[in-house]
Design a protein around this nucleic acid. Sequence first.
DNA 1: ATGGCAGGTTATACCTGA
Length: 263
Amino acid sequence: MRLITWNINSVRLRLETLGRLFKLMDPDVVCLQETKVIDELFPADAIAEMGYPHQAISGMKSYNGVAILSRLPIENWGTKNWAGKNDCRHIHAQLEGGLDIHNFYIPAGGDVPDPTANDKFAHKLEFLKSVSHWWADQQDPKARRIMVGDFNVAPLETDVWSHKQLLKIVSHTPVEVDLLNAMQAAGPWIDAVREIIPAEKKLYSWWSYRGKDWAASDRGRRLDHIWITGALAPKLLDASVAREVRGWERPSDHAPVAITLDI
DNA sequence: ATGGCAGGTTATACCTGA
């Protein structure tokens, strides 16, 4: 089974690109973030025709929005609110056989890494804490769970183009990294991508739109993640970032991240 | 050395992203 996560930055604008991605990667399950559309206007029929008739969607106007698209039947699905906001940043779906998939769009956090001066950063920290506490209450050593999404935190030094230069930049500050690590420990979760691609290797999944030549300057960050529970770890076959997708025409600023499981 | 870009909106400037 192949599963991918992608911050698509508008599902309507990039519907054709999504079809191209289906052909490139042949995924069984696709988790999207920043769909930016209410459920009534989500291109559900077009995506079903492309081979993904089983869908769980939760969107709002203009901002945020998440979706899980699947070739395999979804037995049940739902959403949860975190940090006191109903803003379409999480959706989960259970597939046949009990595989549980959680898709998150964690708040970006604004520019100023100070929760007393910046409400968005305070919200991000609160969001990370509330998800951690929830996972801490879901302990089940046999659980087959996957947690994916745009976490908006690049935890490792090799997850950013310059650790030193980004220490005070939102997405790589120590307070965020500590909270992300706490969330990972709360699962406990295994970083599936770093199981396959060693932590010594630089790895990014996002490059700013603003650079002149994103590929040449390569100032990226690994903001998009796929975590799995210990019960799934023996099934992990592969993981990758589809960097080439960032170079396609009218791209999202995020590249898809993928894993393959022997299930 | 990031913010210079990009997406959405009852737009034609301003919010968001990170």
